[in-house]
């Protein structure tokens, strides 16, 4: 550990490549905290957005027109507005209207923190795309298969869970992959409302240490690794779920 720190100190002294995150405890701690926040935001938002997608796609096939309209409205709202504007809208416009609550220090604070707004906003944003992705998958399930399930006495919900969704999921995976990769990259926007994810941590460091070039490279490499890991996982999952003779 000492040796690594010394080597990076030498690198700065000799070549002017200043990577404080390897030898300054304060900078390293906040960069790692940023990385963890990014991973945590990504995992939570991926899980929530997939749930939203699955539920939304099911509601879209509902018999009630009002429900279908509601989901349609939700998709239009979140798909047709930029995520950064949604984030600002939630945090500054909606957040200001909510009644205040008392926190542990006895101060009046808004009930939803910036972290929570980031999760809500990104989950709904990616969820809107997921609904459409799953709908496409569901429509690819042959009508005859659904009818066969009905003939066996499955209710609409049970048929959805046990027959339609497992098949639709396989068709949807490549598109879902794309959207989830996008979601991980979108989490960087949270820095605009002061969520200390990786870009936020890096920008704090480079504006103090003035090593923009170095930190930009670090950011790029770490994101390539993080997104690479996600793509690899999803690829494995896709292969594990492959059904010979069905779909891709």
């Amino acid at each position: 550990m000492e040796a690594i720190a010394d080597w990076f100190k030498w690198l700065n002294a000799a070549h002017g490549i200043n990577l404080t995150i390897f030898y300054d405890d304060f900078d390293r701690a906040r960069f790692l905290r940023g990385l963890l926040t990014t991973l945590w935001l990504s995992v939570v938002c991926i899980a929530l957005s997939v749930v939203i997608g699955v539920v939304g796609a099911w509601v879209q096939g509902s018999r009630f027109r009002l429900l279908r309209r509601l989901v349609q409205g939700y998709i239009q709202f979140f798909r047709n507005t930029p995520p950064l504007i949604q984030l600002y809208f939630f945090y500054f416009a909606v957040g200001g209207l909510l009644p205040r609550v008392t926190d542990a220090h006895g101060a009046l604070v808004p009930p939803v923190s910036n972290y929570a707004w980031a999760i809500i906003s990104f989950s709904f944003f990616a969820g809107a795309f997921n609904v459409e992705i799953f709908r496409a998958g569901i429509e690819a399930v042959p009508r005859t298969t659904v009818e066969a399930a009905e003939a066996l006495g499955y209710s609409r919900l049970k048929a959805y869970i046990h027959v339609v969704l497992p098949l639709a999921f396989r068709v949807s995976l490549p598109a879902l992959n794309n959207n989830l990769v996008n979601l991980v990259k979108t989490t960087t926007l949270a820095y605009a409302i002061g969520v200390s994810e990786m870009l936020y941590a890096a920008s704090q460091i480079w504006s103090e240490v003035l090593n923009v070039r170095e930190m930009m490279n670090v950011l790029l490499i770490v994101y390539v690794l993080v997104v690479g890991a996600l793509v690899w996982l999803m690829g494995r999952w896709e292969r594990a779920m492959r059904m010979p003779g069905y779909g891709v």
Partner: peptide, 21 residues
């Protein structure tokens, strides 16, 4: 726990909403 923004209007808004003390 610092909550930093890029511009002063955002900060003042956050302060008035009680997002920071």
């Amino acid at each position: 726990e610092l909550v930093s923004f890029t511009g002063i209007p955002e900060v003042l808004n956050a302060l008035q909403q009680g997002n920071c003390i």
